[in-house]
Amino acid sequence: MDFEVPLGNDPVSIRRRVEALERVLERAFVVPGIRREVGLDAVIGLVPVAGDLIAAAMGLYIVWEARNLGMSKWQLARMTANVGFDTLVGAIPVAGDLFDFLFRSNSRNLKIIRKHLDKHHPHTRVIDA
């Protein structure tokens, strides 16, 4: 797995950055016993208030990168709503922490970005073997 994150503003670089951040936020490691992938979003969400705000800021970075791609206001609004919903429900003690393991706003947002990139910048696609 390649962990080099490009710094450019071209669609390929943005795609790789967003995919890397989504991997860290949603699928960084596997919980032993239940074999469930979790990431930094769920872990830092365990810290009351500050953890949820930090996770929201990282999620909003993905939305900012989508804006840099020239995505529509509707797509950006959907992505922002995903982050907002995740943050609001995630802020509820205990139930919100469980919710963070199930609702992956960053994965949903990555799916929206990939769909946009595949349509408007097909050269950014990477075929996994």
Rank of each mutant, 00 (worst) to 15 (best):
M1A: 15
F3T: 12
E4S: 15
E4T: 12
P6D: 03
L7C: 06
N9G: 11
N9L: 13
D10F: 07
P11K: 01
V12W: 10
V12H: 14
R15L: 04
R15A: 08
E19F: 06
A20P: 07
A20M: 12
L21K: 10
L21C: 03
E22I: 04
R23S: 08
R23I: 01
L25G: 02
A28M: 09
F29C: 05
F29V: 05
V30P: 01
V30Y: 03
V31G: 02
V31R: 02
P32H: 00
E37P: 01
G39E: 10
G39R: 03
L40S: 08
D41T: 08
D41A: 13
D41R: 09
V43C: 06
I44L: 11
G45M: 00
L46N: 05
V47D: 02
P48E: 11
P48I: 07
A50T: 08
A50Y: 10
A50I: 14
G51V: 00
G51Q: 06
D52M: 11
D52Q: 10
D52H: 07
I54L: 15
A55G: 10
A56C: 13
A56D: 04
A57W: 10
A57F: 14
A57V: 12
M58K: 09
G59Q: 10
L60V: 05
Y61N: 09
Y61T: 07
V63M: 08
W64C: 02
W64N: 14
E65L: 13
E65A: 11
N68A: 14
N68S: 11
G70D: 12
M71P: 05
M71I: 04
S72L: 11
Q75N: 15
M79F: 01
M79C: 06
A81C: 05
A81K: 04
V83C: 06
V83W: 05
G84F: 12
G84C: 11
L88R: 01
V89C: 04
V89A: 10
G90D: 03
A91Q: 09
A91T: 13
I92F: 05
I92W: 04
I92C: 06
P93E: 04
P93F: 03
P93W: 01
V94N: 01
A95N: 02
A95E: 06
A95I: 15
G96E: 06
G96W: 02
D97F: 10
L98F: 09
F99A: 00
F99V: 00
D100L: 01
D100C: 00
F101V: 00
F101R: 02
L102V: 15
R104S: 09
R104K: 15
S105T: 02
S105Q: 09
N106V: 04
N106D: 13
N106I: 02
N106Y: 06
S107E: 15
S107H: 07
N109R: 11
L110Q: 07
K111A: 15
K111N: 12
K111D: 13
K111S: 14
I112G: 03
I112F: 10
I113L: 13
I113Y: 07
R114Y: 03
R114K: 11
K115V: 05
H116E: 13
D118F: 14
D118R: 08
K119A: 15
H120C: 08
H120S: 14
P122D: 06
P122R: 06
H123W: 11
T124I: 01
T124L: 03
R125M: 12
D128F: 14
A129Y: 12
